[in-house]
Design a protein around this nucleic acid. Structure first.
Length: 357
RNA sequence: UGGGGCGUAGCCAAGCGGUAAGGCAACGGGUUUUGGUCCCGUGAUUCGCAGGUUCGAUCCCUGCCGCCCCAG
Protein backbone atom coordinates (compact mmCIF):
# COMPACT_ATOMS: atom_id res chain seq x y z
CA UNK A 1 0.00 0.00 0.00
CA UNK A 2 1.36 3.43 -0.96
CA UNK A 3 2.33 6.01 1.63
CA UNK A 4 -0.25 8.50 2.72
CA UNK A 5 0.73 12.15 2.47
CA UNK A 6 -1.26 15.24 3.34
CA UNK A 7 -0.27 18.20 1.20
CA UNK A 8 -0.84 21.72 2.44
CA UNK A 9 -2.64 23.33 -0.47
CA UNK A 10 -2.61 27.11 -0.17
CA UNK A 11 -4.27 27.81 -3.47
CA UNK A 12 -1.01 28.87 -5.08
CA UNK A 13 1.06 27.28 -7.83
CA UNK A 14 3.80 25.84 -5.69
CA UNK A 15 1.63 23.74 -3.44
CA UNK A 16 -0.53 22.71 -6.39
CA UNK A 17 2.46 21.34 -8.25
CA UNK A 18 3.65 19.69 -5.03
CA UNK A 19 0.44 17.71 -4.86
CA UNK A 20 0.54 16.84 -8.55
CA UNK A 21 4.13 15.63 -8.36
CA UNK A 22 3.52 13.47 -5.32
CA UNK A 23 0.49 11.91 -6.90
CA UNK A 24 2.51 11.21 -10.00
CA UNK A 25 5.17 9.61 -7.82
CA UNK A 26 2.58 7.18 -6.50
CA UNK A 27 1.78 8.62 -3.09
CA UNK A 28 -1.70 8.43 -1.66
CA UNK A 29 -2.26 12.18 -1.63
CA UNK A 30 -4.79 14.25 0.26
CA UNK A 31 -5.04 18.01 -0.12
CA UNK A 32 -5.53 20.14 2.98
CA UNK A 33 -6.32 23.81 3.06
CA UNK A 34 -5.17 25.45 6.28
CA UNK A 35 -7.48 28.27 7.20
CA UNK A 36 -5.25 30.54 9.26
CA UNK A 37 -6.85 33.89 8.70
CA UNK A 38 -10.15 35.01 7.25
CA UNK A 39 -10.66 38.46 8.64
CA UNK A 40 -11.00 41.37 6.26
CA UNK A 41 -8.83 44.36 7.02
CA UNK A 42 -9.38 48.01 6.24
CA UNK A 43 -8.74 48.38 2.55
CA UNK A 44 -8.46 44.67 1.89
CA UNK A 45 -10.83 41.78 1.51
CA UNK A 46 -9.21 38.63 2.85
CA UNK A 47 -8.51 36.34 -0.10
CA UNK A 48 -9.03 33.13 1.87
CA UNK A 49 -12.22 32.12 0.05
CA UNK A 50 -10.59 32.54 -3.32
CA UNK A 51 -7.54 30.62 -2.15
CA UNK A 52 -9.69 27.89 -0.67
CA UNK A 53 -11.58 27.52 -3.91
CA UNK A 54 -8.39 27.43 -5.95
CA UNK A 55 -7.01 24.76 -3.64
CA UNK A 56 -10.19 22.74 -3.91
CA UNK A 57 -10.23 23.11 -7.69
CA UNK A 58 -6.72 21.67 -7.82
CA UNK A 59 -7.69 18.78 -5.57
CA UNK A 60 -10.70 17.96 -7.69
CA UNK A 61 -8.63 18.22 -10.85
CA UNK A 62 -6.08 15.81 -9.44
CA UNK A 63 -8.78 13.52 -8.12
CA UNK A 64 -7.55 13.61 -4.54
CA UNK A 65 -9.51 14.00 -1.30
CA UNK A 66 -9.68 17.52 0.06
CA UNK A 67 -9.93 18.77 3.61
CA UNK A 68 -10.05 22.02 5.51
CA UNK A 69 -8.17 22.46 8.77
CA UNK A 70 -9.27 25.48 10.72
CA UNK A 71 -6.28 26.86 12.62
CA UNK A 72 -7.47 30.43 12.96
CA UNK A 73 -7.48 30.44 16.73
CA UNK A 74 -4.05 28.89 17.04
CA UNK A 75 -2.56 30.98 14.26
CA UNK A 76 -3.77 34.12 15.94
CA UNK A 77 -2.23 33.02 19.20
CA UNK A 78 1.04 31.54 17.96
CA UNK A 79 1.86 33.83 15.09
CA UNK A 80 -0.10 37.08 15.16
CA UNK A 81 0.07 37.69 18.88
CA UNK A 82 3.77 36.87 18.86
CA UNK A 83 4.30 39.32 16.04
CA UNK A 84 2.45 42.10 17.77
CA UNK A 85 4.23 41.43 21.05
CA UNK A 86 7.60 41.69 19.31
CA UNK A 87 6.77 44.92 17.53
CA UNK A 88 5.60 46.40 20.80
CA UNK A 89 8.92 45.50 22.34
CA UNK A 90 10.66 47.43 19.59
CA UNK A 91 11.87 44.41 17.69
CA UNK A 92 11.14 43.29 14.13
CA UNK A 93 9.84 39.72 14.12
CA UNK A 94 9.59 37.29 11.26
CA UNK A 95 6.09 35.84 11.54
CA UNK A 96 6.52 33.42 8.67
CA UNK A 97 9.34 31.66 10.47
CA UNK A 98 7.10 31.33 13.49
CA UNK A 99 4.29 30.09 11.27
CA UNK A 100 6.48 27.30 9.91
CA UNK A 101 7.79 26.38 13.33
CA UNK A 102 4.51 26.34 15.19
CA UNK A 103 1.74 25.92 12.69
CA UNK A 104 2.79 24.17 9.50
CA UNK A 105 5.38 21.78 10.92
CA UNK A 106 3.88 21.25 14.33
CA UNK A 107 0.15 21.84 14.49
CA UNK A 108 -0.55 20.80 10.92
CA UNK A 109 1.84 17.87 11.12
CA UNK A 110 0.38 16.60 14.38
CA UNK A 111 -3.17 17.07 13.24
CA UNK A 112 -2.51 15.31 9.97
CA UNK A 113 -0.76 12.40 11.65
CA UNK A 114 -3.66 12.06 14.05
CA UNK A 115 -5.88 12.14 11.01
CA UNK A 116 -4.17 9.06 9.63
CA UNK A 117 -1.42 10.28 7.33
CA UNK A 118 2.15 9.04 7.25
CA UNK A 119 3.70 12.27 6.08
CA UNK A 120 2.93 15.86 5.17
CA UNK A 121 4.18 17.94 2.24
CA UNK A 122 4.43 21.64 1.48
CA UNK A 123 5.31 23.77 -1.51
CA UNK A 124 8.53 25.15 -0.05
CA UNK A 125 11.65 25.66 -2.12
CA UNK A 126 13.92 23.56 0.06
CA UNK A 127 15.16 19.98 0.07
CA UNK A 128 15.01 17.39 2.81
CA UNK A 129 17.27 14.33 3.03
CA UNK A 130 17.39 12.09 6.08
CA UNK A 131 16.08 14.77 8.36
CA UNK A 132 18.60 17.29 7.08
CA UNK A 133 17.61 20.40 5.21
CA UNK A 134 19.20 21.85 2.10
CA UNK A 135 18.59 24.96 0.04
CA UNK A 136 16.23 24.68 -2.90
CA UNK A 137 17.80 24.08 -6.31
CA UNK A 138 16.56 27.48 -7.44
CA UNK A 139 18.83 29.74 -5.42
CA UNK A 140 16.69 32.77 -6.22
CA UNK A 141 13.67 31.14 -4.59
CA UNK A 142 15.32 29.15 -1.81
CA UNK A 143 13.08 29.26 1.26
CA UNK A 144 15.18 27.30 3.71
CA UNK A 145 15.70 30.61 5.51
CA UNK A 146 12.10 30.44 6.68
CA UNK A 147 12.40 26.83 7.78
CA UNK A 148 15.43 26.75 10.04
CA UNK A 149 13.34 26.27 13.18
CA UNK A 150 11.61 23.14 11.92
CA UNK A 151 12.68 20.11 13.92
CA UNK A 152 14.59 17.15 12.53
CA UNK A 153 11.74 14.95 13.60
CA UNK A 154 9.25 17.02 11.61
CA UNK A 155 11.52 17.10 8.58
CA UNK A 156 11.66 13.32 8.59
CA UNK A 157 7.92 13.28 8.12
CA UNK A 158 7.86 16.03 5.52
CA UNK A 159 8.26 16.27 1.75
CA UNK A 160 9.12 19.32 -0.32
CA UNK A 161 9.37 18.09 -3.89
CA UNK A 162 9.38 21.62 -5.33
CA UNK A 163 12.84 22.14 -3.87
CA UNK A 164 14.24 20.08 -6.71
CA UNK A 165 12.94 22.49 -9.34
CA UNK A 166 13.34 26.03 -10.52
CA UNK A 167 10.42 28.39 -10.29
CA UNK A 168 10.10 28.53 -14.05
CA UNK A 169 9.97 24.75 -14.19
CA UNK A 170 7.27 24.71 -11.53
CA UNK A 171 5.16 27.06 -13.61
CA UNK A 172 5.74 24.84 -16.60
CA UNK A 173 4.77 21.73 -14.67
CA UNK A 174 1.65 23.46 -13.47
CA UNK A 175 0.62 24.12 -17.04
CA UNK A 176 1.51 20.59 -18.06
CA UNK A 177 -0.61 19.21 -15.23
CA UNK A 178 -3.40 21.54 -16.32
CA UNK A 179 -3.65 23.20 -12.91
CA UNK A 180 -5.93 26.18 -12.54
CA UNK A 181 -3.31 27.95 -10.46
CA UNK A 182 -0.61 27.75 -13.15
CA UNK A 183 -0.62 31.46 -13.85
CA UNK A 184 -1.72 32.72 -10.47
CA UNK A 185 0.51 35.50 -9.21
CA UNK A 186 2.88 34.60 -6.38
CA UNK A 187 1.65 35.69 -3.01
CA UNK A 188 3.86 37.98 -0.99
CA UNK A 189 3.86 39.86 2.23
CA UNK A 190 2.83 38.18 5.44
CA UNK A 191 0.22 35.70 4.30
CA UNK A 192 -2.68 37.28 6.09
CA UNK A 193 -1.69 40.92 6.08
CA UNK A 194 -1.09 40.73 2.35
CA UNK A 195 -1.67 43.95 0.54
CA UNK A 196 -2.41 45.97 3.63
CA UNK A 197 1.12 46.48 4.89
CA UNK A 198 2.51 45.92 8.31
CA UNK A 199 2.16 49.47 9.53
CA UNK A 200 -1.51 49.66 8.70
CA UNK A 201 -2.03 46.29 10.31
CA UNK A 202 -0.33 47.33 13.54
CA UNK A 203 -2.21 50.60 13.50
CA UNK A 204 -5.42 48.62 13.17
CA UNK A 205 -4.47 46.29 16.02
CA UNK A 206 -2.85 48.72 18.42
CA UNK A 207 -4.34 52.05 17.51
CA UNK A 208 -2.42 55.33 17.14
CA UNK A 209 0.92 55.47 18.93
CA UNK A 210 2.58 58.34 20.76
CA UNK A 211 4.64 60.47 18.41
CA UNK A 212 8.31 61.10 19.07
CA UNK A 213 11.39 62.68 17.60
CA UNK A 214 13.72 61.53 14.85
CA UNK A 215 17.38 62.26 15.55
CA UNK A 216 20.21 62.13 13.03
CA UNK A 217 23.84 61.02 13.37
CA UNK A 218 24.85 64.46 14.66
CA UNK A 219 22.30 64.36 17.44
CA UNK A 220 20.09 66.84 15.69
CA UNK A 221 16.33 66.52 15.63
CA UNK A 222 15.25 66.34 12.02
CA UNK A 223 11.60 65.48 12.35
CA UNK A 224 8.91 63.53 14.11
CA UNK A 225 7.67 59.97 13.78
CA UNK A 226 4.25 58.57 14.55
CA UNK A 227 5.38 55.68 16.71
CA UNK A 228 8.84 54.16 17.03
CA UNK A 229 7.51 50.62 16.88
CA UNK A 230 6.51 51.07 13.24
CA UNK A 231 10.08 51.55 12.14
CA UNK A 232 12.79 49.00 11.63
CA UNK A 233 16.56 49.13 11.32
CA UNK A 234 17.78 49.98 7.84
CA UNK A 235 14.44 51.40 6.83
CA UNK A 236 14.49 54.40 4.53
CA UNK A 237 10.94 55.26 3.51
CA UNK A 238 8.03 56.34 5.64
CA UNK A 239 9.84 58.84 7.79
CA UNK A 240 8.29 61.78 5.97
CA UNK A 241 11.50 63.76 6.17
CA UNK A 242 13.39 64.94 3.15
CA UNK A 243 16.15 67.29 2.21
CA UNK A 244 19.50 66.26 0.81
CA UNK A 245 20.30 62.59 1.27
CA UNK A 246 17.97 59.76 2.24
CA UNK A 247 17.73 58.87 5.90
CA UNK A 248 18.13 55.31 7.12
CA UNK A 249 17.01 54.13 10.54
CA UNK A 250 19.97 53.05 12.66
CA UNK A 251 18.26 52.40 15.94
CA UNK A 252 15.35 52.99 18.26
CA UNK A 253 14.91 53.86 21.89
CA UNK A 254 11.54 52.49 22.86
CA UNK A 255 11.59 54.00 26.35
CA UNK A 256 12.29 57.49 25.08
CA UNK A 257 10.31 56.86 21.90
CA UNK A 258 13.17 58.05 19.72
CA UNK A 259 14.05 56.89 16.22
CA UNK A 260 17.70 57.36 15.23
CA UNK A 261 18.68 57.83 11.61
CA UNK A 262 21.71 58.59 9.48
CA UNK A 263 22.38 59.94 6.01
CA UNK A 264 25.79 58.31 5.97
CA UNK A 265 25.64 54.91 4.29
CA UNK A 266 29.04 54.13 5.81
CA UNK A 267 27.81 54.93 9.31
CA UNK A 268 29.12 52.39 11.82
CA UNK A 269 25.67 52.02 13.27
CA UNK A 270 24.40 50.57 9.99
CA UNK A 271 27.05 47.89 9.71
CA UNK A 272 27.96 44.98 11.95
CA UNK A 273 30.55 42.21 11.78
CA UNK A 274 29.18 40.47 14.83
CA UNK A 275 25.81 38.85 15.35
CA UNK A 276 24.45 38.14 18.81
CA UNK A 277 21.85 35.41 18.60
CA UNK A 278 19.42 34.07 21.15
CA UNK A 279 16.96 31.20 21.02
CA UNK A 280 19.47 29.41 18.82
CA UNK A 281 18.16 26.25 17.26
CA UNK A 282 20.09 23.50 15.47
CA UNK A 283 18.13 21.20 13.22
CA UNK A 284 20.53 18.31 13.70
CA UNK A 285 23.74 18.25 15.70
CA UNK A 286 25.45 21.35 17.08
CA UNK A 287 28.25 22.30 14.68
CA UNK A 288 31.91 22.51 15.62
CA UNK A 289 33.02 25.99 16.54
CA UNK A 290 35.36 26.70 13.69
CA UNK A 291 33.94 24.91 10.70
CA UNK A 292 33.65 26.76 7.42
CA UNK A 293 30.14 28.04 7.75
CA UNK A 294 28.06 30.87 6.36
CA UNK A 295 25.18 32.93 7.66
CA UNK A 296 22.23 34.70 6.08
CA UNK A 297 20.66 37.64 7.88
CA UNK A 298 17.59 38.10 5.70
CA UNK A 299 15.61 36.22 3.09
CA UNK A 300 17.39 36.03 -0.27
CA UNK A 301 20.47 37.80 1.04
CA UNK A 302 23.95 36.66 0.09
CA UNK A 303 25.54 34.13 2.41
CA UNK A 304 28.30 35.70 4.49
CA UNK A 305 31.35 33.74 5.63
CA UNK A 306 31.55 33.16 9.35
CA UNK A 307 34.90 33.78 10.98
CA UNK A 308 33.99 32.20 14.27
CA UNK A 309 31.06 31.10 16.34
CA UNK A 310 31.39 31.75 20.05
CA UNK A 311 29.12 29.87 22.36
CA UNK A 312 28.41 32.66 24.76
CA UNK A 313 27.98 32.25 28.47
CA UNK A 314 25.83 35.31 28.90
CA UNK A 315 22.94 36.47 26.84
CA UNK A 316 19.85 38.54 27.34
CA UNK A 317 18.34 38.00 30.79
CA UNK A 318 15.45 35.85 29.63
CA UNK A 319 17.52 33.32 27.73
CA UNK A 320 19.27 30.16 28.81
CA UNK A 321 23.03 29.93 28.49
CA UNK A 322 23.08 27.17 25.95
CA UNK A 323 20.94 28.87 23.34
CA UNK A 324 22.96 32.05 22.92
CA UNK A 325 25.83 32.48 20.50
CA UNK A 326 27.95 35.26 19.03
CA UNK A 327 28.99 35.05 15.42
CA UNK A 328 32.01 36.93 14.14
CA UNK A 329 31.94 37.68 10.43
CA UNK A 330 34.59 38.22 7.81
CA UNK A 331 32.74 41.18 6.39
CA UNK A 332 30.25 43.77 7.55
CA UNK A 333 26.55 43.11 7.18
CA UNK A 334 24.08 45.90 6.77
CA UNK A 335 21.19 46.67 9.09
CA UNK A 336 21.34 43.76 11.49
CA UNK A 337 17.95 43.93 13.18
CA UNK A 338 16.84 42.65 16.60
CA UNK A 339 14.00 40.16 16.22
CA UNK A 340 15.09 39.04 12.79
CA UNK A 341 16.63 35.66 12.19
CA UNK A 342 20.18 34.80 11.19
CA UNK A 343 20.32 31.39 9.58
CA UNK A 344 23.48 29.33 9.45
CA UNK A 345 24.56 27.25 6.46
CA UNK A 346 27.29 24.85 5.53
CA UNK A 347 27.16 25.48 1.82
CA UNK A 348 23.80 24.22 0.65
CA UNK A 349 22.92 22.71 3.97
CA UNK A 350 20.87 24.69 6.44
CA UNK A 351 22.06 23.95 9.97
CA UNK A 352 19.88 26.19 12.07
CA UNK A 353 20.09 29.69 13.37
CA UNK A 354 18.88 32.13 15.95
CA UNK A 355 17.25 35.44 16.60
CA UNK A 356 19.22 38.65 16.68
CA UNK A 357 19.08 40.48 19.98
C1' U B 1 16.50 100.63 10.30
C1' G B 2 24.91 101.04 9.27
C1' G B 3 26.95 96.98 6.26
C1' G B 4 26.49 92.05 3.87
C1' G B 5 23.63 87.73 2.32
C1' C B 6 19.28 85.07 1.04
C1' G B 7 14.07 84.06 -0.58
C1' U B 8 13.19 78.51 -6.98
C1' A B 9 7.77 72.41 -5.89
C1' G B 10 6.62 69.61 1.26
C1' C B 11 12.32 69.75 2.06
C1' C B 12 17.60 70.40 0.09
C1' A B 13 19.30 72.66 -4.29
C1' A B 14 21.34 74.21 -9.67
C1' G B 15 20.39 77.95 -13.04
C1' C B 16 22.41 84.46 -13.05
C1' G B 17 19.09 87.39 -20.09
C1' G B 18 16.62 82.97 -24.16
C1' U B 19 12.16 80.30 -22.55
C1' A B 20 12.81 76.02 -14.80
C1' A B 21 18.93 70.49 -13.62
C1' G B 22 19.45 67.10 -9.78
C1' G B 23 18.56 64.96 -4.93
C1' C B 24 15.20 63.90 -0.55
C1' A B 25 10.23 63.10 0.80
C1' A B 26 5.41 61.65 -1.18
C1' C B 27 2.55 58.80 -4.56
C1' G B 28 2.13 54.75 -8.33
C1' G B 29 4.41 50.29 -10.24
C1' G B 30 8.19 46.18 -10.21
C1' U B 31 11.33 42.60 -7.30
C1' U B 32 10.21 39.73 -2.51
C1' U B 33 6.08 33.80 1.36
C1' U B 34 8.77 38.63 7.38
C1' G B 35 10.02 43.80 8.28
C1' G B 36 13.29 46.30 5.36
C1' U B 37 16.48 46.98 1.11
C1' C B 38 16.66 47.67 -4.20
C1' C B 39 14.73 49.04 -9.31
C1' C B 40 11.30 51.91 -12.59
C1' G B 41 7.74 55.96 -13.23
C1' U B 42 5.13 60.66 -11.74
C1' G B 43 5.94 66.57 -10.20
C1' A B 44 6.64 74.08 -10.92
C1' U B 45 3.15 77.60 -17.77
C1' U B 46 6.51 78.89 -13.05
C1' C B 47 11.08 80.98 -9.71
C1' G B 48 8.62 85.98 -2.10
C1' C B 49 5.20 90.22 -3.89
C1' A B 50 4.52 94.68 -7.04
C1' G B 51 6.34 97.58 -10.83
C1' G B 52 10.31 98.79 -14.58
C1' U B 53 14.22 97.85 -18.57
C1' U B 54 14.25 94.32 -22.81
C1' C B 55 12.07 91.16 -28.80
C1' G B 56 12.43 88.15 -24.40
C1' A B 57 13.81 88.03 -17.21
C1' U B 58 14.21 83.14 -12.23
C1' C B 59 18.37 85.66 -13.79
C1' C B 60 19.26 93.39 -14.77
C1' C B 61 16.86 97.90 -12.03
C1' U B 62 13.34 100.05 -8.18
C1' G B 63 10.09 99.50 -4.12
C1' C B 64 7.78 96.44 -0.50
C1' C B 65 7.51 91.90 2.59
C1' G B 66 10.17 87.87 5.11
C1' C B 67 14.59 85.47 6.96
C1' C B 68 19.91 85.20 8.27
C1' C B 69 24.82 87.19 9.56
C1' C B 70 28.20 91.11 11.00
C1' A B 71 28.36 95.63 13.19
C1' G B 72 25.71 98.86 17.08
Amino acid sequence: MSKKVFVGLSGGVDSSVTAALLKQQGYDVTGVYMKNWSQDLPGMVCPWKQDYQDAKRVAVHLGIPFKLYDFEKEYRQLVVDYMIREYRAGRTPNPDIMCNQEVKFKLFLETAIADGTDMIATGHYARIKDGKMFAGIDSTKDQSYFLYRVTEDALKKSLMPIGEYKKSEVRELARKFGLATADKKDSQGICFVGKVGIKDFLLHELGPQPHGVIIDQHGKKIGEHDGALFYTIGQRHGLQVGGGLPFYVTGKDMDKNIVYVTTDLQDDKLWHNELKLKEVYWINETPKTKSELQVRTRYRAQLVEIKEILFAKDGPPESKNDDVINILLDEDVRAVTPGQSAVIYDGERCLGGGIVY
